[in-house]
Design a protein around this nucleic acid. Structure first.
Lengths: 199, 199, 199, 199
DNA sequence: TATGAATGAGTTTTCATTCAT
DNA sequence: GATGAATGAAAACTCATTCAT
C-alpha cells in the first residue's frame, strides 16, 4: 500500500513538472502551487524560498538520475564488457529522463541556466554523475573498446548531450521509446567502438 | 528610405548575445539595450515588441545556421559520399554554433523554451533545417552507408542533440574546437555507418 | 475557573520584550510566540488578535509605570517638598523604564506610533499618568519652587521626554543607572527651581 | 525664483513626511508615492530600493539638523558664553525639528529603530552631531558654567532626549513654539548652570 | 532617432489569521 | 490547550511598454 504523498512532496513533484516543461526562469510559484492544489503562500510553509524549492528539485533529480543509472549498471552480470555497460547507461539515462521522472528532466533541461547559487549546491552531485560516465568511458578505453581517435572528454559531452537533448524533441506519440533507446545504443556503440562491432 | 541599419543590427546582435547566454526568459530588454549602447525604449523604435525582436533573432539564427551548413555542403566536391556530407554538416553546425554566431547559439539553446507564438513564426525555417538533415541521412541510407538497425528519425534527433548541447558545456579554454569537431565527426560516422568504415 | 495564568502572562511578557526592542510595526507574532516558547496560533487562544495583545501590553505598561511612580511618591515622608517629589518621580520613572519592566519600556518607546485604535484604549491611563506629572509640577509651582518663566506644559513635555528617550541610548554597560538618575534629578531640580537650590 | 522641485526631491520630501509621521516600519512605498503624486514603481526610477530612499532621507535629515544648528552657532557673536551657545543649539534643534524639516523629524523619530544597514550609513553623521553637542557641553564645563555634579554624558542624553521627544507631543495648535523654546532654554540653562544664573 | 519619465501587470515574499485536530 | 497546515491581504520589487519631447 502506498502512502498518500505528502503536501511537501506534492509541491516538489509539481515544481519538477513545471520546471521540466517551462524552464527555470518561466517557472512561477503560482503555477507550482496550483499544480499542487494549493495557494502560492503555502509554498513557504515547506520551503524557504523559490530558490530553495527549485534547488531541492534539482538535487532530487540529480540523485534520481544517478541512482537509476547506477542501479541499472549494478544489475548487470559481471561478464558484460565496458561497452555493454555504456549501452546500459544510455538506456537507463533515457528511460529516467523520458519516462520516469520529471525531476531528472528538470535537471537536464535546466542545468545550464540555473543561477550561480543553485549551481554550486548541485556541484558535487553533478560532478559525481559526470564522473560515473567518465569512468564508463575510461574503462572501455582501457579494454580497447573505444577507438584511439576518440577524445574521451568530447565523446562524453557528445553522448550525454545527445541524451540530454532528447526531452526537447521526443514525443511519445511519435515513436516508441524502445526503438529510440535501441537506436541510441547502436549509435553510441558503433560511434565509439573499434571495428568490427559484434552484435 | 530604410532606417539606419547599424543600430537595428546592433540591437539584433546584442539580443543574440544575451539570448545565447541567459536564455529566453532571463533575457531583459534592458540588458539588450545596454549591450547595444542604448536605452531600453530605443528598442521600440526598431522592433514592435520584445517578442518581435527575439523572434527576429531566432529567424536570423535559424537562417544563418542553415546557410552556413548549406554553403559548406555546396562547397564539397561532387564525388563526396553522403556520409562525407554528413560529417561536413557536423563540422559546419558546430563551427557556426560555437564560433561564428551568437544568433545560431541563441537558436539552439532556446528553441525548446520559446512561447508558442514565436515557435510558430520559426516553424518553416526550423522545418527547413531539419529537412536538410533528414535529406542528408536519407541519402546516406539510400547509399547504404547507414546501418539498417538505425532509425533515421531517432538518429537525426540524437546527432543534432549532441551538437546542440555543445554550447552548454564547451569551453574554448578546455580544448581546441578542431579536436572536438573531429571526435564528433568520427562518432557520427562510425555511429551510423555500415562496417567497415574507410577513413 | 480561569485559564492558566502562566502561559498568558508569558505571552504578555514576551510581547513586552519584543515591543520594547523592535517597536510596534516590527513586532511579529511569530517572534512573540517563539520568545514565549509557543507556536504562533497559540497566541489566539489567549488574545483575540495581535492588536489586542499589544494593547494589553501597553495597558499593563502604562499601569505599571504609574503605579511604580505612585508607590514611590506614597512612600515619601509628608515633609518632602513638591520638588523633592518630582525628583522621586524622575528616579522611579527611570528605574521602571530602564531596569524593572519591559512593559514600561514598551509604552514609552511605542506610544507615539501606535494605531489610533490602541491609542484610544490607552487614552485614560495615559491621561492619568500625565495628570500625575501635571499635579507634581502644579504643586511645585504653587509652592513657588518653579520659576515663573517656566511654562508648565512645556516643562512637563521636556522632562518626560528626557526620561522617555533614555531607553534609546542608555546602555547599562556604559554607566551606572544611579549616576544617570542623579544627574537627571539634578538637572530637573535646577532646571525648574527658583534660585538658589539648596542641596 | 524657485526652481520647481524635481520628482526625485518630491519623493524624498514625501518619504520624509511619511517617515516622520508613521515611523520606519509603517512607512509604505505606496504612501510615499501617493504623497508625491506617483505610482509605486516610479520610486524605483529614482532609488534603488525602499532602503536606499529611506537612507537618503535620513542622511539629508541628519545633515540638515547639524547644518542648521551649526549655522545658528556660527551666527553668534564671539562674546557669547558656552552656555549661551548651548541655548542657541537648543533653539535651533527644536526649530528645525518642529518647524523646518520633516527630514530632521524623520531622523529623530526613527534613528533608534532603523535596520543595521542604514544605521551604519548614518554612523558618521550621527557621531558628528553628537560630537557637536559634546563639544558644547565640554566648553561649558571648562568655563565652569556646568555644575560639577552633572555627568556630561548623561546630561547630553537627557537634553537631546528632551528635544528629540518633542515631535511626539508637540502640537502647534496647543502653544507657540517660541514659548516652548524659551522654556526649554531656561530649563537647560538652569538645569546645568552653576548658580546663580544671570538672565 | 532616441530618451527621460512613468506605469500596469505580475512575481516573490511576509504575516496575521483561521481551523481541524 | 496547542499546533500543523493553509490562506488572504498586502508589501517590495521587476519589467515590458508607452509617450511626450
Amino acid at each position: 500500500m502506498e502512502t498518500a504523498p505528502t503536501t511537501r512532496s506534492r509541491l516538489l513533484a509539481a515544481a519538477a513538472k513545471i520546471l521540466s516543461e517551462k524552464g527555470y526562469s518561466s517557472t512561477r510559484l503560482t503555477d507550482i502551487a496550483e499544480q499542487a492544489g494549493l495557494r502560492t503562500p503555502a509554498v513557504y510553509y515547506y520551503f524557504a524560498s523559490r530558490e530553495a524549492l527549485i534547488a531541492e528539485v534539482m538535487k532530487v533529480g540529480q540523485l534520481r538520475l544517478r541512482e537509476h543509472v547506477e542501479s541499472a549498471l549494478a544489475a548487470l552480470p559481471e561478464r558484460k564488457t565496458p561497452m555493454d555497460r555504456i549501452c546500459t547507461a544510455v538506456q537507463a539515462h533515457l528511460q529516467v529522463e523520458l519516462q520516469l521522472s520529471d525531476f531528472a528532466t528538470a535537471v537536464t533541461r535546466n542545468i545550464g541556466q540555473l543561477p550561480q547559487a543553485i549551481q554550486e549546491r548541485l556541484r558535487n552531485d553533478g560532478i559525481a554523475y559526470i564522473a560515473l560516465w567518465r569512468g564508463l568511458l575510461e574503462d572501455a578505453r582501457e579494454a580497447r573498446e573505444i577507438r584511439p581517435d576518440v577524445d574521451l572528454r568530447a565523446a562524453r559531452m557528445l553522448v550525454m548531450g545527445a541524451l540530454n537533448w532528447m526531452p526537447e524533441w521526443w514525443d511519445e506519440r511519435q515513436g516508441s521509446i524502445t526503438e529510440t533507446v535501441s537506436t541510441a545504443q547502436s549509435i553510441v556503440r558503433h560511434g565509439l567502438s573499434t571495428l568490427p562491432v559484434r552484435e
